[in-house]
């Protein structure tokens, strides 16, 4: 926290090509590490989608990084829970190691200058509102 976020350059799961965290510089980005087998991740997706739809025009974006061992599991999850924000895939665990992920899911709220400002571990339904407040605060900077 308070440090620049590690670089992310990973293949997009819904389209050809790659997405980088660098390309989202200037926006407030929620970097979300998730896996299909993780229950709280399933709760977080619709909430993040809603936040992104609401605050996207003001410069908020979600970058979801899938860390499933089996890609088909992740694809099945995405077929059930559709989101409009970019979902990338890290098959060898380089980015969660670089970010120092301690549990699933973990989200890193990165400010407009690329610095990690909030680390969010786990996810409950009631986490949406405080997260929204943090995002709004960072958007206002």
């Amino acid at each position: 926290m308070g440090q620049p976020a590690p670089a992310v350059l990973l293949p997009d799961m819904s389209a050809a090509g790659e997405v980088s965290l660098e390309s989202l510089r200037g926006k407030v980005v929620y970097v979300d590490f998730w896996a299909s087998w993780c229950g709280p991740c399933r709760i977080s997706f619709p909430i993040l989608e809603q936040l992104r739809n609401e605050l996207g025009p003001e410069g908020f974006e979600v970058l979801a990084i899938n860390v499933d061992e089996v890609e088909a599991d992740a694809r099945q999850f995405l077929a059930d829970v559709t989101v409009s924000y970019p979902v990338v895939r890290d098959a060898n665990g380089t980015t969660p190691l670089a970010f120092g992920v301690m549990g699933m899911p973990t989200g890193y709220l990165v400010d407009r200058t690329g610095v990690v400002r909030v680390i969010h571990q786990g996810f409950r339904k009631s986490d949406g509102e405080p997260l929204r407040a943090s995002i709004v605060e960072l958007l206002g900077e």
């Binding site: 896996a35 087998w37 499933d68 061992e69 089996v70 699933m104």
Partner: peptide, 12 residues
Amino acid sequence: VQPWERGILAKE
């Protein structure tokens, strides 16, 4: 086993 490597362990 890292937190993100528990997918197979989580299987039924």
